[in-house]
Design a protein around this nucleic acid. Structure first.
Length: 413
RNA sequence: GUGAGUGUAGCUCAGUUGGUAGAGCACAGGAUUGUGGCUCCUGUGGCCGUGGGUUCGAGCCCCAUCACUCACCCCA
């Protein structure tokens, strides 16, 4: 048997209603905020990601699906959307036409990781990018937008956590202070953290090992090291959220895995997701457009993990409107076919029973989930009627063919 | 890349200190009518993940391998 590639899943008909619900809800909220959708290719030049996300992030170092094509170019299946969107914006000069770009995109991403709950090799993101505004209120409104999507999806127990990561001016001082602090606590740290305290000291704050948690108690917080500009930026973001009535929690330990984030960073977490408890996250990335060869344009953005959102939404069945037609006896089949064609032309969804025994047809009608089943047999043909059976109550009556549309209109709409 | 758990019928799972392979659901046929979901009867369906080993004998014990799952790591 040929199976799907590890970590890449089929989305079967029974699940599709949920997927569409999530996508459509997100589109609706984005449009309320004046955001436009775009789509970029799934494959990009490898360099785009190594320059965008940072050479020594885990994603770039070991999680990319990179290959060489027949023209000897190094290409990569996109592991995230932000770099691709920046590339498209720069390439098409969108900022020249309209200096503020509010964009979103929805689609599959690829990362070579060991799959587990909420983490797959092909996964889907809802991605939001807002370019051309450096002010803190654009951060606030963007976080509000993210929060409103969660609300519109009916998610409960989602917490918005916020932090400021500082900027290239003030972050080094904090990093240094943190490293000095950790140096003194070395004995308590797990092997991973001993390595991390040099490569990415902020990550140690995030470690789940008990001894590390205690070792890290009383560690310096970056809020004490923010420069004046970052300080006021952060305060204004929080004030903006208050003004918009968006509930949030400050989390001084919050970090981001990608290099391009500065200042505002946030995450939305939920229970019931296993250990991958972040449904979405993002932040500000002012240097990114310039790093990718564009002008010095600021930006904020975020991404939701669709699979993680879906885990929080109860199963939904597609509501079946329309009708099912069962035909009794050989000579009525053609009549049923004609009837189905007429109804479809009127915009009524109509499904014909399989060409099997009448008993099987009725069984199918029951399973199909349609609210009504039309039955046509010799008696009906002679009388010019159709039997209309209400599948919930089991009640049925004879309806004249010319009255059928009117009759169905009530049930089917 | 590291660790743990699980692989038995289409699905969900039982399977006693190693002694001939089970249930429910689903599916097919019938009781049963010009009508499904309920009830009853009957039936189809398994190389017990794969390859070795121990044993008179392995679904069960041992080794290897593959797959899935969860966790570490990382992230959305």
């Amino acid at each position: 048997m040929i199976t799907a590639v590890k970590g890449m899943n089929d989305i079967l008909p029974g699940e599709i209603a949920k997927w569409r619900f999530v996508e459509e809800t997100a589109r609706k909220v984005f449009s309320l905020y004046g955001f436009s959708e775009l789509r970029t290719p799934v494959v990009e030049k490898t360099e785009l990601f190594s320059r965008g996300m940072g050479q020594d992030t885990d994603v770039v170092e070991k999680q990319m699906y990179t290959f060489t094509d027949k023209g000897d170019s190094s290409l990569t299946l996109r592991p995230e959307a932000t770099a691709s969107v920046m590339r498209a914006v720069i390439e098409h000069g969108l900022l020249g036409q309209e200096p503020v770009q509010k964009l979103f995109t929805i689609g599959p991403m690829f990362r070579y990781e060991r799959p587990q709950k909420g983490r797959y090799r092909q996964f889907h993101q809802i991605n939001c990018e807002r370019l051309g505004e450096a002010g803190p209120l654009s951060d606030a409104e963007t976080l509000a937008l993210a929060y409103e999507i969660a609300v519109a999806l009916g998610l409960s127990g989602v917490v918005l956590e916020v932090n400021s990561l500082g900027c290239p001016a003030c972050r080094p001082a904090f990093k240094k202070a943190l490293q000095d602090f950790l140096e003194a606590k070395k004995e308590g740290l797990c092997p991973d953290c001993l390595r991390r305290m040099y490569t990415n000291p902020l990550r140690v704050l995030d470690c789940k090992v008990e001894t590390c948690k205690t070792a890290v108690e009383g560690a310096p917080e970056n809020s004490g090291y923010l420069c004046d500009e970052c300080r006021t930026h952060y305060d204004t973001v929080l004030a903006g959220l208050d003004a918009l009535y968006i509930p949030y929690e400050k989390n001084p330990r919050l970090v981001r895995g990608l290099d391009y984030y500065i200042r505002t960073a946030f995450e939305m977490t939920a229970k019931g997701l296993g250990s991958q408890n972040a449904v979405g996250g993002g932040g500000r990335y002012d240097g990114l457009v310039a790093a990718l060869g564009g002008n010095d344009v600021p930006g904020v953005g975020f991404a939701f993990g669709m699979e993680r959102l879906l885990m929080l939404i109860p199963d939904m069945a597609e509501e079946k409107k329309g009708c099912f037609i069962a035909a009794l006896g050989e000579n009525t089949k053609k009549e049923a076919l004609k009837l189905a064609a007429q109804l479809r032309r009127k915009g009524i969804r109509t499904e014909l029973a399989p060409e099997k025994s009448f008993k099987v047809q009725m069984k199918q009608a029951g399973k199909s989930g349609y609210p009504v089943c039309l039955i046509i047999g010799d008696d009906e043909m002679a009388a010019g009627t159709v039997a209309v059976k209400d599948m919930k109550t089991g009640v049925q009556d004879q309806v004249k063919q010319e009255d059928l549309l009117k009759r169905l209109a009530d049930i089917v709409r």
